[in-house]
Design a protein around this nucleic acid. Structure first.
Lengths: 329, 329
DNA sequence: CTGAAAGCGCTTACAG
DNA sequence: CTGAAAGCGCTTACAG
């Protein structure tokens, strides 16, 4: 900036004023133009660290996602990307810190080294201690979760409708013995899936169906074993909701391989909609989270938090669910 | 740090020496311990911007990936994650800048605002101008690509073996009319897929098979149309290599739906290995990029670049391909 | 309207 | 061995 000022024949202060369009500083158009031209010629790029060091606050927002988790494409990642875009539009710099190994205090330390205005991370990255540490340092800790939390400001991604819609469709078809498959065991499931399966279970029960919740890891052997057990025990359900397209596709394939007719004997659908639903036979009926139709602006909540106002009402993203009828249910 | 120094009863300089373990500064063990304890009690976190502002160089490396592209899980993203891990282990701070909208000079500007030591981005984010701008500012521009480039230091992810292995398997089965499906049209394909399909085509031709390269977008209608055309024109191939599991799965499903026997009439396999290969019937034979078996340490190349030495030899990641035989070829 | 000056949090030659 | 001082690139009251 010194170079720019020198070239424009003004002081550094003046250069700063025009480059920042500081409100309240009336600079003659002539001078303004000279500074801008000098900046252009020298390809001036402001030094954000110096700026925020001086200002005492930064315009940096750091998101934290585990790179490998990203590949599973959970809703929290999708939401984070959208938040990133909106936060950038509001003039902040959004950077992703992806070290998968840190959580709690060590995570807070590595975020704080950057002195960001806020950090947005999945709820499991925070502890009571680390939230306090961040707040004390003036960094707003924002969590992403599928359920509310009072640990800190939390953006709630409510995917319950996916499960309810799925269960309701089975009930409407007349299913009376419903299996709710997956979304109950591992931490990963909880993070990626939220509580859609809890809701599916509740809805199926409320609808009067005999309902079972079954843990499931989506692979060929598990699916084949499960179907074998059902057949041996005579506990074949007449409807199955899979937590993801992959869950549902595996059980569907295993059923067909075992000679069970889908959907006549067992109707199968997924509380989720991935392209592979088209690839299995019969084609898999799914429930889609209609992100495009989603009106909630998560970023508004995040931006509010950045300015010290946190409105939990704003921060709930209720995902609209839409049935995508195909052939399996 | 002033607080820490005061609490430990030493000067800020001394505090800095012990906190940074500055080599050549002999501080008595007593003093050291006092400083460390004070830092612990005050939960001191160094301010990286202040440090790099003073030092004139930063330990920041920024990666640039488009968040939505990430979800497609291309090899460049997987590689970037691994580079990130290694770069972090070497003591750098690795941050991801994911603004999908910028490229060329605007991208360079937004990276430079952070004054990083290096940036790692897919080749298409760079232009001649932006590379020069970065270099001039002392930031090392590193590209990720599937083919070499002399624009700047480039990490080459060579996925050619995937295509060769796939084609060779079809040749070994006796296929003489081979279709190489996809990986030729859109920029996206190029980025995600590299040149595996070029190599598949070359290998099939070299093996004496009549070879056709066919553009393909992996959806149901396109697949059905293509199969219909083949049947109508009498141009049904006896072997198909799909660019991805999804490509191959769609054509496989369309063939089966049309009453074609797979693999007897047409053998199908993917130059790629995704879990859904297990879900289609017949199960899809694939070729897996054995990342775990890959010995190349991309980070060595990147770290060398950071220190001003760039060794193109180090920077080629030749992905080992392994056939995963299932039922479709 | 414009400039000189202080200071953000750090590091590092340089004196003591 | 330890401290006082300068300075990285910027912003912003404060004087002129």
């Amino acid at each position: 900036m010194s170079d720019v000022a020198r070239r424009a024949g003004v002081s550094r202060a003046t250069a700063s004023y025009v480059l920042n369009r500081t409100p309240g500083a009336r600079i003659p158009e002539q001078t303004r133009a000279r500074v801008l031209e000098a900046a252009e010629q020298l390809r001036y790029v402001p030094h954000v660290s110096a700026r925020s060091l001086r200002r005492g606050r930064s315009d940096l927002v750091v998101g934290h996602v585990d790179g490998t988790a990203v590949l599973r494409g959970g809703l929290s990642f999708v939401t984070l990307i959208q938040v990133a875009r909106d936060v950038r539009e509001a003039g902040y710099t959004f950077l992703i810190h992806g070290d998968p190994t840190v959580t709690g205090i060590p995570a807070a330390r590595s975020w704080l080294a950057l002195r960001p205005a806020a950090v947005v991370a999945t709820l499991d990255r925070y502890t009571e201690d680390s939230v306090a540490m961040l707040a004390e340092a003036g960094t707003v800790p924002i969590a992403l979760s599928h359920t509310p939390s009072d640990l800190t400001a939390t953006v709630v991604i409510d995917d319950g409708d996916l499960g309810r819609t799925a269960a309701q469709h089975l009930l409407d078809r007349g299913c009376r013995r419903i299996v709710v498959l997956g979304g109950c065991s591992r931490l990963v499931d909880r993070q990626t899936l939220g509580h859609r399966m809890d809701e599916a279970e509740a809805a199926a029960e409320a609808g009067g169906a005999e309902t079972r919740r079954v843990p499931f890891s989506p692979d060929r052997e598990t699916a084949a074993d499960l179907v074998r057990t059902w057949l041996a025990d005579g506990t074949l359900p007449d409807g199955v909701v899979g937590a993801t397209t992959t869950h549902a596709a595996h059980i569907l394939t295993a059923l067909v391989d075992a000679g069970v007719r889908v959907p006549e004997q067992v109707a199968v659908l997924a509380a989720d909609d991935e392209p592979q639903a088209e690839l299995v036979r019969p084609r898999l009926t799914t429930v889609s989270a209609d992100l495009a139709a989603d009106e909630s602006r998560m970023a508004d909540a995040v931006l509010a938090a950045l300015e010290g106002r946190w409105d939990p009402e704003l921060a709930v993203r209720r995902l609209p669910a839409r049935l995508v009828p195909r052939d399996s249910a």
